[in-house]
Design a protein around this nucleic acid. Structure first.
Lengths: 224, 224, 224, 224
DNA sequence: TATGAATGAGAGTTCATTCAT
DNA sequence: AATGAATGAACTCTCATTCAT
């Protein structure tokens, strides 16, 4: 049983690690950086996390946990609304999450990449072997599909309650909507370091709203 | 004046580098890997490219060059069609390009990140300093905005010839369309290592076509 | 605050570095050599000194410190004697120092060279840039002129108390005397590896004494 | 038999090598530097000199040759003067030579060091083994003692003709005088990069003259 | 628990030297 | 004779990891 103190320390390390990993990437991050960030010694970090990869996976795991907590809360808060509203809110939440947790998007994508590589027994990535060996890697498996499932079930609900008139396969709708959010996040993040509110002279806020308007329209399938 | 032989060798190296960088990333790639891939010694690679960062930027430069060659060709081949068709074809070309040149997408995005970091004098990325110092980095500056300009001019043409009824700012339309393509590429690539033709039980070909259908619809702005 | 243990280790490394640098020169010395000399690993040396140049400058700094400590002690011990005696003793001390600290002379001269190159913004010496960037390089600046100042003030004292009848400019006397000591050290060191007590069939001890006799005579200026 | 053309090329290389070796030292000099300096390729240099060490020794050899040519000329031109004058002129020539051939002094000293190391079978200097293996190294042996012998014979002549009243062992006188010249050269060279005409506010020309005045006085032995 | 030290396996880069043309 | 290429050993420096205290 982990003590309160231990959990607190672990979270402190995870915070720092998340910050730095997402800023400069896994390989560019030194354990020393993480330790210094919280006034700790390198050795101590190893007391809590057995390896760099393990720490990285722990960060990813925590991020998944939090994301899913949010998905569930979001889903719960819209259970009285129609399916379409629920879906849009879920993506809105997702986008907010990425915006507020810099680099979270990268963690998620990287995990997906690793998971895929495992299924395919792709031995290309020697480095990531250690990641897949991490206990956290396996713990994430129990979570990773939840966001998908939650969104898809809301899509189905929407198709049933008539708010989503688009009758394409729910997975296709999910992918289309997610691609839009992912693309927005990716392009936005490429120019994110500063907090500039415009990209190419377009107000980010406007672009963002338009993204959701398009998503909404897709679900409406007005054109079909 | 570079000899034919030299250019051929450089391209051979660039090919190998592109392959490996895109497979396992910049940091994970060893110069030795690249050299061995083409049966060369480490030292020889340095005869052609002064540093790892320089080589990386050279790869990026070549990718930009090729991309733009394609954009121009694509644009030329649709000059008799209406603007909307031209725009869709450009994105279709872009997506094909990313699909066929594994990792190209990452190169492009990474460059944008570096360029942005430079404008903001963001010293976070110590590693990338050497990249920005590369002569290729500066050569790319003359190219990087061409794709944007080409697409935007076609959008404008489409708005003028009536094929693009959506009267939003061309930049906003560009971003929306590009986000869709970028998102598709990103998600697709996360599960690309093998040549599986389905993601989440959805046929990739179908998803792909649907992406263009949605893009087309956005330009039509049927719902507006 | 540096621990006792740390300081001891640093000095152990400095000892080894001084030994090897002076034996085979800066460029010929490998960090590995220094580490092995004291049964340490390469990496550990880097724990204490951030670079080879930094280590070299640290060695130089320590040498300066010790030299000056000696100058001061020597000067203090002759404060009741006349100026000429004080001057001769200072040079005698200097020569002893060079004799006992093999290669010290080279360190001192190299530093002077670097310092000069800096003032002249001479970019010839690419290698030494890192040396000038060392924190130790700047620390030495506060010390480097002390020997000169001490000797010159004793020369002035000697001219005032009548023991140094030579009325030439104190700096000229300093240079003339120092040249003699420097020349002796240089020639002697060229054939120093062994402890042979003769050079060209001349007893080194005799030559040495004669050097001081000549110096003494210059200060007396008997011939003027 | 070496062709004219070959000898010319060799000398061109030797010129460049002498310049660069003396500026930045043996280890810091790259064969490429030397080749580029005269618009030649690295490979070509190897056609004329089998190794870097061999080239270095060739430079040294040529320097010795020239020095000795000068010694002989100088000696011949003073054969009608008394011994003391001849000695002073020889040292004056030596000093001029060092002043005009930057780095020559280092070459000479380095050779002495190598020669000494050989006699003592000192295996410290692994690098220099190749130098001692050079054919030029052995050729120098036939020359190296000539300057000493010439000076010493003039000293003896001076002692006999009464111009050198100092009756100390000629070798001791030689060492004392040479030390003075060597010290002057060393200190002067430390601050030589620019052509400043003062050191420590002392006019170099004045210091130089004073050096010879002192030397002259030593030979006179006025004080004895 | 925590930390300062120590380690050692690389990784990027340099450069003397060789070789094919 | 000359050169552009190619090589590989050597070297500096990094950093994840371990360990003694």
């Amino acid at each position: 049983m982990k003590s309160m103190r231990r959990i607190a320390k672990e979270n402190q390390i995870l915070d720092a690690a998340e910050r730095i990993f997402s800023e400069i990437g896994f390989r560019n991050t030194r354990m020393e950086d993480i330790a210094r960030e919280i006034g700790m010694s390198k050795g101590s970090v190893y007391f809590y996390f057995e390896s760099k990869e393990n720490l990285y996976m722990a960060v990813t795991y925590r991020a998944f946990e939090e994301l899913i907590r949010g998905y569930k809360a979001c889903s719960a808060s819209t259970k009285d609304e129609n399916g379409k509203t629920a879906v849009v809110e879920l993506f809105r939440y997702h986008l907010d999450f990425c915006e507020n947790q810099p680099g979270y998007y990268a963690l998620l994508m990287n995990y997906m990449s690793l998971a895929r590589a495992e299924e395919e027994k792709n031995a290309d990535m020697a480095l990531s072997e250690a990641m897949r060996d991490s206990t956290y890697f396996r713990k994430i498996r129990n979570l990773r599909d939840l966001p998908l499932e939650i969104v898809v079930s809301e899509i189905v609900r929407g198709q049933e309650d008539g708010s989503i008139r688009n009758k394409k396969h729910p997975h296709l709708l999910y992918l289309s909507a997610w691609a839009q959010v992912a693309g927005f996040t990716e392009i936005r993040s490429t120019s994110r370091k500063n907090r500039k509110s415009t990209v190419l002279n377009v107000s980010v806020a406007e672009w963002r709203e338009y993204t959701f308007e398009l998503m909404s329209r897709v679900l409406d399938d007005l054109a079909a």
